[in-house]
């Protein structure tokens, strides 16, 4: 990996949460990196998941590395490059080289992103897009008929949706106004006042619990779990439904002791459902495109048998357990 393909972040494009209070909720802008229709693993029914960009955590196994930074990034896929040279013509910074293969000189690049418009082959693509609530809702509402027939709706995921509280709040309000079932997929790492703000518009929380030991949690994700667990316990007193999600990372959080403790927590907060998300490496190539290195090389993908054992262990605690992918 050439050095100059390093992380590229446009500092200026970072979302600054508007505090003026004058913007119409539908005009509030947020930074997203994807809208995925026909999601069936992010809550009940058929849903559309909006992926918000920016996350306070840095989980080493993260399968969506483009979700982490709170700014637009440039993704470089040298494998798709045909060396047509169209990007060279439009780059105002002269930051692109084609030999020996497509690469972008990160100190020089100012993320004008002209190259992403010029590239025909998907070798240079922006990760992240500023959008208004109105624009997102227009896309989300296209699948209304499926939500109605399936009891589905919208899920805000990330990144960490609560990292853009104003946008998340406005989007949830708009979705609720449109009669949609609403869910947030969260790490739980957010100030309580942010939760309080969005809860009136949220039907379901998909709440990640990664490890019960605060120190280990911090080593692998960059933050401890105190706020996360405190928020969770507070939320359990509210009327919002909670589905606990456990990313199953072999060698990290799959000890019987930790799984039992997580299960006990799920019981304590009366989680409606516990979902095991077995670790996978699908996001690995995206690290390369972002010029980063993949930090979670020790883990192997848990096999079906193993996942089943974990499922049974949790079911033994009298929990409703499902397996996602």
């Amino acid at each position: 990996m050439p050095e100059r393909n390093k992380l590229l972040i446009n500092e200026e494009s970072k979302i600054i949460e508007s505090v003026d209070g004058e913007t119409e909720p539908e005009d509030v802008t947020g930074l997203i990196f994807a809208i995925q229709r026909f999601s069936i693993q992010d809550g009940p029914g058929i849903r559309t998941t909006v992926f918000l960009k920016g996350c306070p955590l840095r989980c080493k196994w993260c399968s969506n590395p483009e979700s982490q930074e709170a700014g637009i990034e440039l993704m470089v896929d040298a494998g798709k490059c045909t060396k047509c040279g169209r990007c060279l013509e439009v780059c105002p910074a002269g930051a692109i080289v084609l030999e020996p293969q497509l690469a972008v000189d990160s100190p020089r690049c100012h993320l004008a992103l002209k190259c992403t418009e010029a590239c025909l082959y998907g070798a240079l693509e922006p990760a992240g897009k500023n959008v208004t609530v109105r624009e997102v809702m227009k896309e989300v509402m296209r699948d209304t008929a499926y939500y109605r027939n399936s009891g589905g709706g919208i899920t805000l995921s990330g990144g960490e949706p609560l990292y853009q509280p104003r946008f998340t709040h406005a989007l949830l309000m708009a979705a609720r106004k449109a009669g949609l079932h609403t869910a947030i997929d969260t790490s739980g790492f957010a100030p309580w006042h942010v939760f309080k703000q969005v809860l009136p518009y949220t039907d379901l929380l998909l709440y990640d619990v990664k490890h019960m030991d605060s120190q280990i949690h911090k080593e692998a994700t960059g933050v401890d779990n105190l706020l996360i667990l405190e928020n969770l316990r507070k939320l359990s007193k509210k009327k919002v439904k909670i589905w606990l999600r456990i990313p199953l990372i072999p060698g990290f959080n799959d000890s019987e002791d930790n799984l039992r403790k997580t299960g006990d927590l799920a019981k304590e907060i009366v989680a409606e459902k516990v979902t095991i998300l077995p670790y996978h490496e699908w996001g690995r190539t995206k690290y390369e495109k972002l010029g980063r290195s993949y930090k979670w090389v020790q883990a192997v993908r848990p096999d079906r048998q193993y996942v089943q054992e974990v499922k049974e262990l949790l079911q033994g605690l009298n929990l409703h357990v499902t397996v996602g992918s």
Partner: peptide, 8 residues
Amino acid sequence: KFIAYFKT
């Protein structure tokens, strides 16, 4: 969910 897709 598949059935809901069908009904849509």
